[in-house]
Every structure is written in structure tokens, then in C-alpha cells.
Design a protein around this nucleic acid. Structure first.
Lengths: 182, 182
DNA sequence: CGCAATTCGTTGATTACTGAACAAATCCAT
DNA sequence: ATGGATTTGTTCAGTAATCAACGAATTGCG
């Protein structure tokens, strides 16, 4: 991909970091563009250079993480669910503040459904393969069932401040998936 | 003071941080301008906008810290040595990486003498006051004696990875100074 | 030593960011 | 609801940083 000007990269990183931090402190509705600019140490106008408003900014942050998770799936295509899950949980851990605020705060309920959509989408190929294990079951039901299970597990993990190591979470939820879908 | 463009502030902070980090990893002589630019995530040319070369850069970093310590002395003018020392030790702690590499590494022996000069300079006023305690003693000797003592204590503290809390160091060296100069 | 490779310091054209200002929209207490 | 204050989104001229390129100076290896 064409490499971006490092000034753009730095500005956007600072802005996104600022939003994540602010969302862990107060509701998204109460965050002003000026708040974000101050926290990011960036001129208010700079934000408008990259995003039309704060909703667009949050959308792009969400889409970026969703896209990154999708990319991780590609590289994990040949793995078992246990191994593949671990790649995801490492990513969650690395972006702890973002995911915990996104899944915990009421400010961004949209993220949860966006996240669920991705999980289901990534499951589709696997379910096709595991036909004999699930004969007589409706595919949509299977996808919703296990998709919700995965999302709920991640939510529980963040809301309880990661009581188990990522490795363990990945192994256990991975085992449950392997047993049913592999 | 006239507020500086935040782009300038950010660039200079990134550059100085990069130098400090690199100096803790290798000798100053082995650090190239490109190294600094890479670490600071800044174009190589940007460094030349602010500094003539890496020696000028290091000089300005040193002078800035010396000046900050001098400022701290002003605000601590009415304190005892114990209290005033604590203000210094808090500053040392906050800039741990800089001071430990500057006092430990062979790359910047100049800093030590610059630091000693400052300590002696700041002691001068106090020694004038404490004449009766030190009658019969040459002022230059007193200044060198206690200046070296302070610098040596700080060096020991950093070289041994701060074995005592800043608070204790400040109290104990402060007590020794109060006993002799106050 | 001699030569290749790296680093240096500088240049010029381009782009991103800045700060200040503005009218319009929104918020909020009375 | 009304008026004052804040926030928004946009504009503009000015400045800093970018990237690519350059010859000159240094380094380091065979």
C-alpha cells in the first residue's frame, strides 16, 4: 500500500488514542471535538481534515479494528480454533482500552453488533465444512448461537477486567468451538 | 514566554526522547542522525531544523535540564536542604533514563562537570550565610567538598539503580548539608 | 592503501498542520 | 420560549515537516 505521510499517521494515531481515553472517562455524547483536540495535542481543525465529525471518527476507529481482526483471520486460516482464537485474544489484549470501553460503555452499542457480524461472517466457511456434525440443524441458528457465544465470552472477559490470561481464554473457548464446528 | 508552535514542541520532544533512549542502548559516538530520526519517527531533515549536529543536540538537552534544576532551586529558595533536595530528587526520578545514562555512560562525561558547576553555583549563597559554622575554612574548598559530595551521591544512586527511595536520599543528604551549611 | 558504502548536511518543491477568525448551530439556565 | 454561552464546521494565510535528491565527507572492509 502507498505509504502515508508520517504527519498524517501521527495525527490520526494521536486523535484515535485521545478518543479511546476519553471514552473510558465519560460518555461519548459528552465528548466534544475540542476535548479530543486538547487530549491529542492537535489543532481542532486537524480533526476535520481527516473526519467529518466525531461519529465518523468513531466509525472509522471501529471499522479499522474490525478490518484488522478480519486480516488476522486470514493469516490464521489454517489454524484450529484454539490457535486462531489466541491470535484474536492477543489483539484484544494489545488494545485493551479500546475493546473494554467499547464493550462496556453504553456510548457505543453499535460496536457490539458490528463485532458479532464479523464473527458470524468468519464462521460461515467453517460451518459449511462441519456439516456432518450438525446435520438437522439450521445454519443460521448455528451461526447465531456460536457467534453470540464468542462475543459474550469476550464481553465477560473485559467487564471482569480479564480475570483469566488471554492464552487460557483462547484455549477454552477454542476447545468449545473445535468440538462443535471443526 | 511566547508559546511555541505545537509542531515544534512535539518534534523536539520526540527527538530528545529518542536520543535519551538510544544513549541507554549504545555509545553516543555510535548514534547516527538517521538513528535518531528513525527512533523519533521524524524526517532526518527535521533534526537539522532545530540542531546543527548531534553534539549541539546533546548540549541543548543538557543545558535544558541544568536550567530546569536551576529553576527548581529558585522555587525552593526558602526551604531547608532536606526539602529542597527532595524537589531535585523528584526531578531526577521523573527523568530517570536521562540522568542514569548521563551519569553512567562514558559517552557524556561532560554532563558530570556541568552538573557539578551548577551545584556549586547554587551553594554559594548558602555558604556565605554559614560563615560562623565554617570559620577558618577556605570557601572554595567548602564548595568543592560539598558539591562533589552531592554529585557523587546522585551518581551512586543511579549507578545502583536507585536502591533507596528519593525521599530517603533527599532526607539523608539534606541532613548532612543542613548540618554543615545551614 | 583504495574503493564501496554509509552518513552527513543542504536544497527545493510539496503537503499537513497551525492558530485565529467567522457565522451558524446547539445547549442550558432562567 | 429567550438570550447568553458554548460548540460546531469552515476559511485563510503562514509555518513546520515531509520526501527525494544531491555532492561532500567519513567510515570500514578487502
Amino acid at each position: 500500500m502507498a505509504k502515508v505521510d508520517r504527519r498524517i499517521a501521527k495525527s490520526q494515531i494521536a486523535i484515535k488514542k485521545a478518543v479511546t481515553e476519553l471514552m473510558s472517562e465519560k460518555s461519548f455524547d459528552d465528548i466534544t471535538i475540542q476535548d479530543i483536540a486538547d487530549r491529542a495535542d492537535v489543532n481542532r481543525g486537524t480533526i476535520y481534515l481527516h473526519y467529518t465529525d466525531k461519529y465518523d471518527l468513531l466509525d472509522k476507529m471501529i471499522e479499522e479494528h474490525i478490518e484488522n481482526l478480519r486480516e488476522l483471520c486470514k493469516s490464521a486460516a489454517e489454524m484450529t480454533f484454539q490457535e486462531g482464537n489466541y491470535v484474536w485474544y492477543e489483539y484484544f489484549e494489545r488494545h485493551y482500552l479500546f475493546f473494554s470501553t467499547m464493550l462496556a460503555s453504553k456510548g457505543a452499542p453499535y460496536f457490539r453488533s458490528r463485532f458479532l457480524d464479523l464473527v458470524i461472517e468468519e464462521f460461515k466457511a467453517e460451518v459449511d465444512i462441519a456439516v456432518e456434525k450438525n446435520k438437522g440443524l439450521n445454519e443460521e441458528v448455528i451461526l447465531q448461537f456460536f457467534g453470540s457465544a464468542v462475543v459474550g465470552s469476550v464481553e465477560w472477559w473485559f467487564k471482569n477486567e480479564m480475570p483469566l490470561p488471554a492464552r487460557i481464554m483462547a484455549e477454552q473457548t477454542g476447545a468449545l468451538l473445535d468440538r462443535n464446528l471443526e
